[in-house]
C-alpha cells in the first residue's frame, strides 16, 4: 500500500531533474532527453492517479503522450541532424540565429 503522495513526489522530483537538464545542459540531445524525462514524470503521475481513482483515462492519456513524444523525437532529431550538417556544431548556445 503505497500512498499516492509518494508517487506524486517522485514524479515531481523526476520532473525537476528533467527541467534542470533542459536548463543546464548545452547538448541539444541531452536537452531532448531531459524533455523526455519530464514527459515521463508526467506519465508516472498520470498513471498513479489513474490507478488511484481506478479510471482508465489516465492510461489513455499516457498512451497519447508516448505517441506524441515519438513524433516529436522524430522531427527533433531530424532537425538536429540537419543543423549539424549545416553548422558542424550543435551547441545550443551557439545556435542563436535563424540564418544557416
Amino acid at each position: 500500500m503505497v500512498p499516492l503522495n509518494y508517487y506524486i513526489i517522485l514524479s515531481a522530483i523526476l520532473f525537476t531533474i528533467g527541467a534542470l537538464g533542459v536548463l543546464i545542459r548545452r547538448n541539444p540531445l541531452i536537452i531532448f532527453m531531459s524533455i523526455e524525462l519530464m514527459l515521463n514524470a508526467a506519465n508516472l503521475a498520470l498513471i498513479a492517479f489513474s490507478s488511484a481513482f481506478n479510471e482508465l483515462d489516465g492510461q489513455i492519456f499516457v498512451f497519447f503522450v508516448i505517441a506524441v513524444a515519438a513524433a516529436e523525437v522524430a522531427v527533433g532529431l531530424a532537425l538536429i541532424v540537419q543543423i549539424f550538417k549545416s553548422r558542424h556544431n550543435i551547441n545550443v548556445d551557439e545556435i542563436n540565429q535563424l540564418k544557416g
Binding site: L23, I24, I31, N96, Q97
Partner: peptide, 13 residues
Amino acid sequence: QNGFVRSYALSVF
C-alpha cells in the same frame, strides 16, 4: 531577448 533558449526556459521555470 538574448537568443539563448535556455535563458528563456529559465524564465518559464
